[in-house]
C-alpha cells in the first residue's frame, strides 16, 4: 500500500510540473491571439486577460495590407527548406566519411570543423561581406543559403559522425560484399539507418534558419529577399509596431501561426524518426 501511495505521489508531482510548464508555454500564445483581436485601448485597460468585447480584425487587416509579411514569409520557407536539405546531404556525407573512411588529415579536419562552430558571427561581419561581394554572392539567395548551410554544418557533422560511430559495421560489410560502391552504401544503407540523427539535424537546422536574423542583414540588402525575422523586426520598429501593441501582436500571430501549423503537421514524422532511431541505437 505505501508503495502505491508513493507512486501516486510521484505521479502527482511529475504531472504538476509538466502541466505548469506546459501552461507557461501555451499561455503566451493564447494571450497574444486574444490581445491581437482587440483595439489597443482595450488592451491597455485589461492587459489582454479578458476576451475581446467584439472580435476586431482591424489589426489583422492592417498587418496584411501594410506589413508585407507575405514575401518575407515565402522567403523564410524557401531558405529553411533548401538550407536544411543541403545540410542533411552534405553533413551526412561528411559524417559518414569521417566515421568510416580512411584518408589523410581526417582527425584534423574533424576538429577544425568543430572548432569553427565557436567563432561568433558578428565578429566576422566585415570579412563575410567583403568575401561574398568578391564572388558575387552578396545580396543573393544562394549566398545567404550557403552561409546558413555553413552555420549548421559543424553541429550536423558532429551528430552524424557520432551516430555512425555507434552503428554496427556488419550491414555495411554485407552491402560491400554485394558489390555496392561507397556512395551507394551511404545512400542505400547508412543514410536510411541514420533517420534519428537526420530527425535531430532537420529540427535544429530548420529552427536555426527560421530564426536567423543577423546574417540576413549582412548578406541581403534587397527587401524582396529578406526573411521573416527581419520583416518582423522592421515592423516592430515602425511607429505603429512600437506604439500599437495589439497590432504588433497581430503581426506576431500572423508570423507564428503558419510555422506552428507546419510544426504540428511535421512533428509526427520528426518524432517517429527520432524514436525509430531508438531501436537502432
Amino acid at each position: 500500500m505505501p508503495e502505491q501511495i508513493k507512486k501516486t505521489l510521484y505521479l502527482l508531482v511529475i504531472h504538476t510540473l509538466l502541466i505548469t510548464v506546459a501552461l507557461s508555454c501555451i499561455f503566451p500564445f493564447v494571450w497574444m491571439i486574444n490581445s491581437s483581436l482587440k483595439p489597443n485601448s482595450e488592451f491597455i485597460q485589461d492587459h489582454g486577460f479578458e476576451l475581446p468585447d467584439t472580435i476586431n480584425l482591424r489589426n489583422y487587416i492592417y498587418t496584411f495590407t501594410k506589413g508585407n509579411l507575405g514575401t518575407y514569409f515565402l522567403n523564410s520557407i524557401l531558405y529553411t527548406f533548401l538550407t536544411v536539405i543541403a545540410i542533411v546531404i552534405i553533413s551526412s556525407l561528411a559524417g559518414y566519411g569521417i566515421s568510416r573512411l580512411q584518408f589523410r588529415g581526417k582527425n584534423f579536419i574533424f576538429y577544425m570543423i568543430l572548432a569553427a562552430m565557436m567563432i561568433p558571427i558578428p565578429a566576422a561581419f566585415v570579412p563575410l561581406y567583403v568575401l561574398l561581394k568578391s564572388v558575387g554572392l552578396l545580396n543573393t539567395r544562394i549566398g545567404y543559403i550557403l552561409a546558413m548551410v555553413n552555420v549548421g554544418l559543424s553541429l550536423s557533422i558532429y551528430l552524424y559522425k557520432t551516430f555512425f560511430d555507434q552503428l554496427p559495421k556488419d550491414l555495411e560489410e554485407s552491402a560491400r560484399i554485394d558489390g555496392c560502391g561507397k556512395l551507394r552504401i551511404w545512400w542505400h544503407v547508412m543514410f536510411p539507418l541514420a533517420k534519428p540523427a537526420t530527425g535531430v539535424v532537420v529540427i535544429f537546422n530548420a529552427l536555426n534558419v527560421w530564426n536567423e536574423l543577423i546574417l540576413a542583414l549582412v548578406i541581403l540588402s534587397n527587401k524582396g529577399l529578406m526573411p521573416l525575422q527581419v520583416g518582423l523586426l522592421k515592423f516592430s520598429q515602425s511607429s505603429v509596431g512600437l506604439t500599437q501593441y495589439t497590432t504588433l501582436m497581430a503581426a506576431l500571430t500572423v508570423a507564428a501561426l503558419p510555422i506552428i501549423i507546419i510544426y504540428l503537421i511535421m512533428q509526427k514524422h520528426i518524432i517517429k524518426g527520432m524514436t525509430a532511431g531508438a531501436t537502432v541505437g
Binding site: Y96, L131, N150
Partner: peptide, 14 residues
C-alpha cells in the same frame, strides 16, 4: 565525401 563540407567551410569560416 568531406569535400563539399570542407569547401563551404573554408570559404565561410577559414
Amino acid at each position: 565525401f568531406v569535400f563539399p563540407a570542407l569547401a563551404i567551410f573554408s570559404f565561410f569560416y577559414i
